[in-house]
């Protein structure tokens, strides 16, 4: 489900990884913060929030809620509306 284009086949989308991890700010110089951001995953069995891009559609990046134990999709929002910044505040 794309908030712009409506219900679409999953083949139009591309998975883009875990969306629960806040991207460190550009100034962050602590390699451990970057390491954890790039390399570690909660990888939960159950509810998960993740990035998808509607590559064959509007090219928007989305944040989709999905249950990884059943693949049942939940709500999807435009990533730009949903991002957790490094301060933990949704923009």
């Amino acid at each position: 489900m794309c908030p712009i284009c409506g219900e679409r086949d999953y083949t139009e989308f591309r998975y883009g990884g875990d969306a629960t991890k806040p991207r460190p700010s550009r100034e962050t110089a602590d390699p451990k913060v970057w390491h954890d951001y790039v390399f570690l995953f909660d990888n939960p069995k159950g509810l998960h929030r993740e990035y998808w891009q509607h590559v064959l559609g509007c090219r928007q990046w989305l944040v989709l809620e999905r249950n990884t134990a059943t693949n049942e999709p939940g709500e999807s929002r435009l990533a730009r509306m949903d991002v957790v910044t490094c301060e933990g505040e949704p923009k």
Partner: peptide
Amino acid sequence: GHSSHLAAMAGLRLPIES
């Protein structure tokens, strides 16, 4: 397949996605 799941029980996060 369930490495992260088990590791989480021990409080560990792994560089693994299933």
